[in-house]
Nucleic acid binder design. Structure first.
Lengths: 149, 149
DNA sequence: TAAGATTGACTGCTCAATCTTA
DNA sequence: TAAGATTGAGCAGTCAATCTTA
């Protein structure tokens, strides 16, 4: 076939295509770590983020959703599965009858303390090929984050 | 809660967390483009990649799978849906009775010619905040690609 | 009117297992 | 034995619609 209407010499020059590929490679690299603890990736993200946000104060479900960019429906589903596993508790917000306030349990925090170092180790191995450039890469990713709506 | 066992000052410093977030933001940014043409992202990737690879020769399904890093089962499913839409054809490989050889149709190529520039425009808008640094970012992503198994 | 939360339906994506041929 | 391809099951993720309260 004749030339494609593209600005790039090949797919490897396209930032979108490469972002998508590397994201999948990263998912595959991390999956064994989560499976070891019978967690899904999204369960880990929500529970670890809750533990992080909690360092301040009580956390609304919607805040957790916004912080992780996980949409409210998905957050609702997964938070309830984490509640079922007794890794967190939900209480009605006394200030806002619509909202839930989330609190990690001791079990949940213990789990994250075990998982987090292994996740970071797997991360470090995955991003090793960037060497010291990983800091710059992280700054680039931060620059790409869209404004919250 | 007390300090988490992490190397990072916060989630935004973690390359894994940020890669995951930005990938989702990118998916959301591109989705309207694909929907406009009644394509899914993965359908676009496979069809566009087929058109790209075809510039050489006949393409086996497994080659397309490896090139895109989409696993063979998924490739099989989506390729057949593209065949159903008449965007590509499948013929048995004369040299290897197990394999399919894939060929885009004129309709498929016409579609990609329309979609590709819009995808690249949306991409350009998404990565705009990196400015000239986008080249370096793409090189980083290429450096992260794991060895094929 | 808008915001926090949820339900049910539908599609996307992965895995284990299988079939056939190299 | 290994490689190309597929099936069916199950979880991940999205959307439209709804409910309740701010």
């Amino acid at each position: 076939m004749s030339k494609l209407p593209t600005r790039f010499e090949g797919p490897r020059q396209s930032p979108g295509f490469m972002l998508w590929k590397i994201h999948f490679a990263w998912q595959r690299a991390l999956r064994p770590v989560f499976e070891r603890f019978d967690l899904t990736h999204i369960q880990f993200v929500l529970l670890a983020s809750l533990c992080w946000l909690e360092q301040k104060d009580g956390v609304q479900q919607i805040q957790l959703s916004q912080h992780t960019s996980i949409d409210p429906m998905m957050t609702s589903q997964v938070v309830r599965s984490l509640e079922g596993k007794a890794f967190l508790e939900r209480e009605r917000d006394p200030q806002d009858a619509r909202a839930w306030r989330l609190k990690s349990t001791a079990m949940g925090r213990t789990l994250i303390r075990k998982v987090l170092p292994q996740v970071e180790a797997a991360d470090q191995a995955f991003f090793e090929s960037l060497g010291a450039g990983v800091g710059r890469f992280v700054r680039d990713l931060n620059a790409l984050e869209p404004e919250p709506r």
